[in-house]
Design a protein around this nucleic acid. Structure first.
Ligand code: MN
Ligand code: MN
Ligand code: MN
Ligand code: MN
Lengths: 141, 141
DNA sequence: TACTTGGCGTAGCCATTGCTATATTTCCCC
DNA sequence: GGGGAAATATAGCAATGGCTACGCCAAGTA
């Protein structure tokens, strides 16, 4: 099983390859706000666990296992960002919160959150009513 | 700032005192599924950080700071359990998921989840409609 | 082709939080 | 009041995942 930190790296690597075609140590480090030496160490662990194939100083590619996991992680992250946005969390808090919680939800919970999002998408009035509840609660205090 | 682990211990201690009047090392260990030696060590850290006052072999009491934090943590945990229950997560997954995510949500997010819960409480039809969406999505696959 | 330099890798440290093994204290029962 | 068991404390180890300091590689420039 992948640790939260391993998931963060895998997700970032998947996204970099998806968007730029490759994932370099320095890009990963910048994205995750860690030092390059930490990236090297983690890449070696992900290689050992067969999420990717790594050649020192040259580059890395994701294995099928790594691609599959990476995509799931990226989708999960996006879903959770949409969820927090929908319920009205301030933009500035969303990324950090999602980075934290994404590693701790069962796929059951993920599915239920997906359903909840679909519920709000199907009828925009619902989100409006949610915001009305919010305003009423705020007025009480 | 308290780490996730510190929060787990504080929450458990608060709850034990709330329910039984006292919190013993062995009860804390059982509740958190760790060994008693781990509890002793953490209690000493929480003492050092002024969340509680600890007398070796005798017992502990929460400081005002510890009580305030403990209550907030317990309320937050309960809120998140209610949230996952409401959106239809299976009972067996709820405790573990909440134990994980509770440490990673801003108070902004917590407030928005509170609002969402109130939204579903105010009109039980809404939860019914959510379950309808769920059934439709399930039928598609 | 040789030098330089920025990117990358390695070694070793630290904090955190768990564990086991062992020591100490307390409490209960005789 | 003393002995022994249960509870608790301490010491020391391990895994994880950061960091700094320093060494190495290779691409690009002169
Ligand atoms: Mn994350
Ligand atoms: Mn993420
Ligand atoms: Mn927890
Ligand atoms: Mn909790």
């Amino acid at each position: 099983m992948a640790t939260p930190s391993m998931e963060d790296y895998l997700e970032r690597i998947y996204k970099l390859i998806d968007e730029k075609g490759y994932a370099r140590v320095s890009d990963i480090a910048e994205g995750l706000e860690v030092h390059p030496s930490s990236v090297t160490k983690m890449i070696q662990k992900l290689d050992k666990d067969n999420y990717l194939i790594y050649e020192k100083y040259r580059g890395l590619i994701l294995t099928p296992k790594g691609k599959k996991m990476g995509k799931r992680l990226m989708d999960r992250h996006e879903l959770l960002e949409n969820f927090l946005t929908t319920i009205g969390v301030h933009e500035d808090n969303i990324y950090k919160d999602v980075e934290g919680i994404e590693h701790h939800l069962s796929w059951d919970s993920i599915t239920c959150i997906e359903t909840l999002l679909e519920y709000f998408r199907r009828d925009p009035n619902r989100a409006d009513e949610l915001m009305n509840v919010r305003k009423e609660l705020e007025a009480e205090n």
